Amino acid sequence: MTLPDSMTVIAIARPGGPETLEPQQAPLPALGPNDVLVRIAAAGVNGPDLAQRRGHYDPPPGASPLPGLEIAGEIAAVGSAVTHWRIGDRVMALTNGGGYAEYASVPAGQVLPVPEGWTLSDAAALPETWFTVTQTLVMRAQLQPGMSVLIHGAAGGIGGAAIQIAAILGALPIAVVSSAEKADYARQLGAVATINSTSEDIVQRALDLTDGKGVDRVLDIIGGSMAQTNIAASARGGHIAQVSTLDGGNANLSLRTIMAKQLTLSGSTLRPQTAATKAEIASHIRATLLPALTAPGFPRPRVTSFDMADASEAHRLMEGRGHIGKIVLITPHGRQQLPIL
């Protein structure tokens, strides 16, 4: 494959609104000995991209300044120390930034094969959310078969991934949503029950669904006052995994309730993790979760696609918080591959 000297990227011209995203020309990213170069067909849009665009989430040292944390495409080149990937392999990957581009250089340990039968656009909707949920809810909170798990924002990217992962592991996902349409979507993904946060009491409904025990695990992206709700809804020995704070980073908590219930409250962000940690997460996904994705009838996330050049419109849609599923950007190469996207 002959590589071009430059590529089109979507850069953040200055901190601000969606209009600050603009196409630019840039050299292809450098390829380290343990990296692979991916010719991108599709890139997922995630909450951290919006925060970075606003100037609230700086890339870690050494990471690409471009937004974009997940991609799918074909390997265009491999580093000198990479032995398990080949040029032409269809892959999806967690990037360290740089996904809003035609090419991205990614540590080989953060790359996964596209599940058989999946399009590249669907695959691009997986890595960032699946790595996040696997790290926090599975590896750290030790989600086990039979456990009940309360999932906030269940019709979005992280919430949808949490439902699917919990279902694969034999846990019982309870989806918190804000509309009947979102409830239907959550059930399609595998939720055993739903709670409408606009018309139902989350704590009482969670207790009713668990025969008064409370939920074993919570995955929260809301923060703020929802933290106390999670504590009240949790069972003794429960674990609350905080992965985002859409409604605020501060909360008034009942420490005595945390003590009495022997609760664990953990928090984490994925992007600053080391390459070794991300490779460990990828290995866990590949061994325990990825096989399920190829099963006939496995539910796919709902994907809304935009051309890469329309990244501003994609951000506007996501900021509205009314969309369902995932949003992906399609590169010109991806458009050429539409029959297999």
Rank of each mutant, 00 (worst) to 15 (best):
L94A: 02
I222S: 14
V91L: 07
S178T: 02
A167W: 03
G159S: 05
A232R: 12
P4Q: 10
T257M: 02
P27A: 07
I71C: 01
A193T: 04
H56M: 08
G322A: 14
L28I: 02
S254L: 00
A155K: 11
E280C: 08
G146E: 15
T269P: 03
P15W: 12
A155T: 06
M259V: 01
T210L: 04
P296M: 12
G55L: 13
M139T: 10
Q262H: 11
T269Y: 09
V303K: 12
A279E: 14
T269V: 11
D122F: 13
A175C: 07
V45R: 06
T132M: 05
Q336G: 07
M147W: 08
M7E: 13
G79C: 00
L265K: 10
W130S: 01
P272H: 11
I327Q: 11
E19R: 10
G55H: 15
G320W: 06
G47W: 13
I40T: 10
R321K: 15
H84M: 03
W85L: 03
L137P: 11
G156T: 07
T95E: 01
A123I: 03
H152F: 12
L263N: 07
R217Y: 02
A309S: 09
M7G: 02
L219Y: 14
E128A: 03
W118M: 05
Q188R: 15
P332L: 06
V176I: 13
Y185G: 02
E181Q: 15
P332S: 14
H333M: 03
T288M: 01
I231M: 01
V243F: 08
T210F: 10
G62I: 00
P48Q: 10
I330G: 09
V138P: 12
L137S: 11
K261Y: 08
Y103G: 04
A279T: 12
A125S: 15
D89P: 06
Q135C: 00
G248D: 12
V36L: 00
I165F: 00
W118P: 00
T288R: 08
A162N: 14
G97H: 07
A125W: 06
P173W: 13
T83Q: 14
H323S: 15
E200M: 02
G214P: 06
N96K: 09
L150I: 01
L137I: 02
R140H: 13
A276D: 14
S197C: 04
A311L: 05
S6G: 04
L263G: 13
R90C: 02
S244G: 15
S244N: 14
G190W: 10
I222R: 11
E280T: 14
P299R: 15
S6C: 05
V106K: 06
P67V: 05
D58F: 03
P18H: 15
K182N: 07
T229W: 03
G267S: 11
V303Y: 09
T264C: 03
P29W: 06
G99P: 00
Y100N: 03
L329P: 07
D35C: 11
S305Y: 11
R300D: 06
G160V: 04
I285L: 14
H323D: 10
